[in-house]
Design a protein around this nucleic acid. Sequence first.
DNA 1: CGTTGTTTTGACTTTATTCAAGCATGGTGG
DNA 2: CCACCATGCTTGAATAAAGTCAAAACAACG
Lengths: 246, 246
Amino acid sequence: MVKFFSVPEFEQRCSACSISELCLPRGLRPMDVRRLETLVSSARPMSAGQSLFAQGEPLRALYVVSRGSMKTTVLDGNGLEQIVGFHYPGDLLGLDGVANDVHVCAAVSLEASEFCRIPFERLEQLTDQLPMLRRRLMRLMSRQLTLDDDLLMGLGSKSGEARLASWLLSCSRHGDRQDQPRRSLQLSMSRGDLANFLGMRIETISRLFSRMDHLGVLRVRQRAVEILDFDRLSEWAGRAARVADR
Amino acid sequence: MVKFFSVPEFEQRCSACSISELCLPRGLRPMDVRRLETLVSSARPMSAGQSLFAQGEPLRALYVVSRGSMKTTVLDGNGLEQIVGFHYPGDLLGLDGVANDVHVCAAVSLEASEFCRIPFERLEQLTDQLPMLRRRLMRLMSRQLTLDDDLLMGLGSKSGEARLASWLLSCSRHGDRQDQPRRSLQLSMSRGDLANFLGMRIETISRLFSRMDHLGVLRVRQRAVEILDFDRLSEWAGRAARVADR
DNA sequence: CGTTGTTTTGACTTTATTCAAGCATGGTGG
DNA sequence: CCACCATGCTTGAATAAAGTCAAAACAACG
């Protein structure tokens, strides 16, 4: 059944978009951005818990978060989810599917969110014609690799408090258009998601937040977190690291 | 000072190489492989502990491990290393540097190792002419992303025994040319490296190995590990996962 | 052999998990 | 508008797991 109106797709105007500097068009000539625009449509807005694509689904398009936030998850053999990343406006989703034309993770929205959609096959054809776009795409993929490395570094931090502290700091620095890190954060994920992601139990996360609040390092009110003392938080994040084994 | 003989560089014959099916040339037409070959030279062989490139060094070339094994590490603010990956013949190193033309991790050899070297700028130029090569490169980058995701999933496994067990299983499956996983592994990294990577202390790793040995799941003799009971090992790897929090 | 560096083991301490109960918050329907 | 329930978050006490420090066993190398 063809549904004409259920998925309204508007052509997007990247050149007029406020986040284009974080996004795919960055560094492209206006002429090339124009050609890219013709591929881009807006995907259906989603509310919390809905998924943009599922694990195992064939790769059809890449998506850019334009509003809201997402988590990407992989299901292990027992059907338990592991969160492998959180994603914010400007972030490109779906590149994991390029390797085998199949998504290896699912993308689920954490709150009301919107997206741009770029059919992958047409994007690939366009890269054949626009070397700058190809370069941009490769750099974006590489950036994801380095982000994952940072992540692994954070998770390697042995103590729980260090993991949480360094994650908070990286949140505060996220989308580094301006130099200074944000002081107040509005977390979009539940404690459960955070615990899953950081490899701890919900209760441990909660206790850590409470402790940091009592000590005056943070002010935690539900999902609103304010960083009161950056120095002590960084110190705490570094605490993780004891003497290396060698 | 120009050293003529210290870094002998031979042009490599990818078409004659035994691991070309794991490597960059995979899927390319013989004609294109020929053109790729002209870029490839062999890098200086290295012994354990030597580094192929350092963190912060400008990206000049990509490398493929042809013999031996490597670790990639990032140094955190306090100068402590976190191992972000182990790499084996056929693995491509250096893609992390594409994002900002600077390596964000260092590559250090774990044993006597050899490499092919591909100047990145020339490779990029060649991709402008060979769409298939571009696709292959994108797929390889994507594959690294999915590997990192797997890794994150493994590390998310809360208990130490689960992390070690699932890492061993992934080792045994590594380079899945043939279907059946390897039974006996010759680890090339020290217990210290393994502990660093898995986010545990050396002593914990050692105790886990001992326990698995006593229980007859593994036979551990130094760095030689034989998997005696795949089923129980998998069960152990899954054990990690308790009920998801929600 | 003795020296060096790595790995294993042991006793003890710290940290995180578990299970269970209590608080909020936000929404629904009387 | 307020009692009511559902959900997500916090807290507490007991248990299990991992980390620390110190010493012994083992390999590798000259």
